[in-house]
Design a protein around this nucleic acid. Structure first.
Lengths: 203, 203
DNA sequence: GCTGTTACTAAACGCTGTTCAGTAAAACTG
DNA sequence: CAGTTTTACTGAACAGCGTTTAGTAACAGC
């Protein structure tokens, strides 16, 4: 009676096949450049077949968003092992920005896409993001506890730092830094990060 | 020989008619919800007529982007008359964020839309944005000159402040603040702004 | 071997942005 | 005013999109 199990497995493999193809195409052409027919062609099935495994295009987006969230978690993971909370916070911020700069499309998907957010909050992707965010807030809390800040408003401190990092990456990702020569942009971003670290010390 | 002038004028009026209709529709339904046929219906012309006045949909977007830039300039204009550079800077930041919160669709269009940026840099909209940005940088420079900051890296200071404000607004606009209860979001944004002002004092 | 289920697809639908051939009015010319 | 050209506009179409449906061929169970 292993047929049902086999079918189940094949179904899951097919879902993964679609996702992998979508992922590859996305890295090549960006999100806007990919459509269902492209994905279908890549896996050598008809477009209609896709809809037997994913309700609609959004569901594929959500799955990719989850992959992006996992990639981000892995990228910032090294920061978690830093003992000192202050240094951990700095390393976390540095890696967060580094992730956004190196994977603008994923960052876009996670934080800038206008995809319908209503249906996403109970999903794995959002949970994963929340977990990373919780780790971030906990690190800020540890810094507050150890008197690295004058302020004790953990929530506001965390949000302020996040605003800076997110603003930095998204201005870069969405190309709103054009008033600065291209070869200065990364340097400016680095100086800005250092500056925020200094600012934070007297917060 | 006033016919040519009249035709010229009528052509300009038609362009404005299209733009006004697009603007109204956009405020109602958001950018994604508006298409050429909607605009055509609103002005009671056929869709093809639109293309006699605007090369393509992007050109209409650019024109709307210009309107958004003008609206933003007008919104932050009161800050320009503040004498003291430090207070001017704070007021400018406050109004910038206020604009983003009150007109998320316009802010989106100006700073978050993935519209092709290549063709925009020589246009009025970009010039307008540059002018506002220049005013911002000049204000930071005035603060630097009057020793409001310890640092003298005007560029990095300006960019850091912009990152924070932009991050704050865009997290709000693109609904990535869902981990905070809705009624706390504005308050958190305010606390974060106050915090950044404090941080900046010891920069 | 027959029957019902499953996996898949060709073709279509309705929606986009955009183009083009055709038309009727307006402007120019004599 | 009559004849010609130029202008302003449109209906119908095209290609590309996400998605649905009717139908088919292979498979599973008896």
């Amino acid at each position: 009676m292993g047929i049902i199990q086999r079918k189940e497995r094949e179904k899951e493999e097919m879902r993964q096949l679609i996702l992998d193809a979508a992922h590859d195409l996305f890295r090549e052409k960006g999100y806007d450049g990919v459509n269902i027919r492209h994905i279908a062609e890549a896996i050598e099935y008809s477009p209609a077949t896709i809809y037997l495994y994913y309700k609609d295009k959004n569901e594929i987006y959500y799955a990719l968003q989850f992959m992006a969230a996992a990639a981000k978690r892995d990228h910032v993971a090294p920061a978690m092992s830093v003992e000192n909370p202050w240094e951990r916070l700095i390393e976390f911020g540095r890696l967060y920005i580094d992730f956004g700069m190196q994977h603008p499309d994923w960052y876009d998907l996670l934080f800038l896409t206008r995809a319908p957010m209503e249906h996403i909050e109970n999903q794995e992707c959002w949970q994963l993001g929340l977990a990373t965010h919780a780790f971030f807030v906990e690190t800020v809390q540890a810094c507050v506890d150890q008197r690295y800040f004058k302020s004790t408003d953990t929530q506001a401190i965390a949000y302020t730092l996040w605003c800076h990092a997110h603003g930095l990456v998204s201005l870069f990702v969405r190309e709103r830094m054009r008033m600065y020569p291209e070869d200065q942009r990364v340097d400016l971003a680095n100086r800005s990060f250092d500056m925020l670290v200094k600012m934070a010390t007297c917060l």
